[in-house]
Design a binder for these strands. Structure first.
Length: 264
DNA sequence: CTGGGGAAGGGGCCC
DNA sequence: AGGGCCCCTTCCCCA
């Protein structure tokens, strides 16, 4: 992901799959009294159920509200598979810090200094510096250490191995773990209000983004943008070898993967 | 198999 | 600093 230069990725973070087929267990919790396809008009005016504070996660034993029937599940069945996170097994930690405007608790925001030569981490720069001398026994003076050894502060996510160079970026990321925005219709939870807003359109059928060329409408602006490419003779994404153009990068990737552009 | 649509995640920017 | 929006990207499903 080219734009995610702020995050240091240590592992292949395949996106969590929220497709319907993966939500069967969650769907089982949806009350029959809650229609999924429609929302009452009065609810449409303010359909968001985003809980930036601890309203529904106020305590370590707090359970999701009746409107948020998604209960914390085992890592293997969670939409956000946190099985790679050592802390994901403790359910009480799922409800703590990370709500949007809450100041992050110290146990969530860890200011950690990493050694670039081993996996050790330290809570202070001085401790790290002291440790790093062990990698260079012949050059104990800090000023003689290689330039890359200079430590940069890292904001660590408690729930996964990601680390960020800014606290704001980390806070934003943590929301993807805490999922404070809950759909009042189906209970599905999202990291940000506008994601929930887009999801609610799947219930209401609202499609505010219309194509001026074919009157087709979309619930998502990006999807409209991708659709507009289909009207274009020359599409945005071009194969470097055969000059074919594609409306989506994913189609170009598929095209390349199918062997049009074999590596020379 | 390919193209297109639907849904969603996430970082950056602006206010 | 935080929220909202923009934009890009990805994955899945279906025709």
């Amino acid at each position: 992901m080219p734009r995610s230069f702020l995050v240091k990725k240590y592992f292949s973070n395949k996106k969590p799959c929220y497709r319907e087929s993966h939500l069967e267990s969650q769907r089982a919790f949806v009350p029959e009294s809650l229609p999924r396809a429609e929302l009452p008009a009065e609810n449409n005016s303010s359909p968001l159920t985003c809980y930036p504070d601890s309203q529904f996660f106020s305590g370590s034993d707090a359970l999701p509200s009746p409107l948020s029937p998604i209960t914390p599940v085992s890592p293997s069945s969670s939409p956000l598979d946190l099985s790679s996170s050592p802390s994901s097994s403790s359910s009480e930690e799922e409800e703590d810090g990370g709500r949007s405007s809450d100041p992050p608790s110290p146990d969530i925001i860890q200011h950690v200094y990493h050694c670039l030569h081993c996996s050790n981490s330290y809570g202070s720069l001085s401790a790290l510096s002291h440790h790093q001398l062990s990698h260079f026994p012949q050059t104990p003076r800090a000023s003689s250490l290689p330039a890359e050894v200079s430590a940069r502060p890292a904001f660590h996510c408690k729930h996964c191995p990601k680390e960020y160079t800014s606290l704001g970026a980390l806070k934003m990321h943590i929301r993807s773990h805490t999922l404070p925005c809950v759909c009042p219709t189906c209970g599905k939870a999202f990291s940000r209000p506008w994601l929930l807003r887009g999801h609610i359109r799947t219930h209401t059928g609202e499609r505010p983004f219309a194509c001026q060329l074919c009157n087709r409408a979309f619930a998502d602006r990006s999807n409209l943008r991708a659709h507009l490419q289909t009207h274009s003779e020359v599409k945005k994404y071009q194969c470097g070898s055969c000059a074919r153009t594609f409306s989506r990068m994913s189609l170009l990737h598929k095209h390349n993967a199918s062997g049009c552009c074999p590596p020379s």
